[in-house]
């Protein structure tokens, strides 16, 4: 992998050089500031890095600002960014994830931990290239008629990266975020999920590009609805968006569902043939993450995910049952 590491401490950069030498197969470039890193990226326009390692706390431009700047370059909208942090302060980590970080490693790091993270990132970089190809290879088919024969190469259950929507992060980043935070750091956090009703039918009818656009539009609507709250959200696949809210805010699921659906109704979403899409979501259980950490926190997110799917199924079933009910005068 071609990696760019940025840290104001030359000792960290030398440590990383030694690490890369021992692991091999990686081409490491280093910079001591955010400005220097951006100059390097600019000078190599057209060339892409496979992975970035950014220190969070740096003078002038910190790692979070640098992440935002790098995410604004078309070549690196989804390049994995691993944050290096010596801080346990969750506020910095939350900001870094919201800015587009994929994962983080706590300093001082150890060789096996770093090796494992880089290995995960390498797998992610390969998967990203394939996913982007799937979506944009079929760009031409976006004008296919709704009832035509859309080429569905985008799997319904695969997580999709959403860009430029506030506080919406990659799903892998969300899993990394939840799995690594300590019990104390998750004290004021809750998790819940939204599921798009009838998503299987929608996925079957829409082209991959239309489906991708739908997911992106719904995430924007939800993000707008949650504006003013501290939260992170990701698209987990299967029409489900998972959220982690902070600062003790635990939403009322029904109220939230109604307000998101009202906003969706006002947004008026269409397919590429100009036909209106009637999109509604269901919200599942809202779960506090108090005293949960690691795997149990990830399980809580998984439960929020499945309960949102169940809520959608229950809603569809109730609609179906309504028509089967005996009618009385």
């Amino acid at each position: 992998m071609k990696i760019l590491a940025v840290d104001d401490d030359p000792i960290i950069l030398e440590l990383l050089e030694q690490f890369m030498l021992s692991v091999g197969q990686h081409d490491l470039t280093t910079a001591q500031s955010g400005a220097e890193a951006l100059d390097i990226i600019d000078a190599e326009a057209g060339e892409t890095y496979d992975c970035f390692l950014f220190d969070i706390q740096m003078p002038s431009m910190d790692g979070t600002e640098l992440t935002k700047a790098v995410r604004a370059t078309p070549e690196h909208v989804d390049t994995p960014i691993l944050m290096l942090t010596a801080m346990s302060d969750k506020g910095y980590i939350d900001e870094a994830f919201a800015a587009g970080a994929t994962d983080y490693v706590t300093k001082p790091f150890e060789v096996f931990e770093l090796k494992a993270r880089i290995g995960l990132v390498e797998g992610l970089a390969i998967a990203r290239r394939k996913d982007a190809k799937k979506i944009f290879d079929t760009f031409e088919s976006k004008f296919a008629p709704l009832n035509g024969d859309p080429i569905n190469t985008l799997d319904l259950h695969q997580p999709i990266s959403i860009y430029d929507v506030e506080n919406v992060i990659d799903h892998m980043a969300m899993e990394n975020y939840v799995a690594q935070l300590s019990r104390g750091a998750l004290f004021g956090s809750s998790t819940f999920a939204f599921n798009i009703r009838n998503v299987v039918t929608l996925h079957g009818k829409l082209t991959p590009f239309e489906f991708y656009s739908l997911i992106s539009d719904v995430s924007e609507v939800v993000s707008d609805e949650l504006k003013g709250r501290q939260f992170l959200m990701s698209y987990a696949g299967g029409g489900t968006f998972v959220c982690v809210s902070e600062n003790g805010w635990k939403p009322d699921a029904h109220q939230l569902m109604d307000s998101v659906n009202l906003r969706l109704a006002h947004t008026e979403l269409f397919n590429n043939a100009g036909q209106r899409l009637d999109i509604r979501v269901s919200v599942g259980d809202v779960i506090r993450l108090i005293w949960k950490s690691g795997a149990s926190a990830v399980n809580a997110v998984a439960h929020a995910h499945s309960s949102a799917e169940s809520a959608s199924d229950a809603h569809e079933k109730s609609m179906y049952d309504f028509w089967l009910q005996e009618k009385y005068a």
């Binding site: 104001d8 401490d9 000792i11 960290i12 440590l15 290096l84 300093k107 001082p108 790091f109």
Partner: peptide, 8 residues
């Protein structure tokens, strides 16, 4: 900076 590297 010292805290971030000494342990490694």
């Amino acid at each position: 900076q010292i805290a971030g590297t000494a342990g490694s």
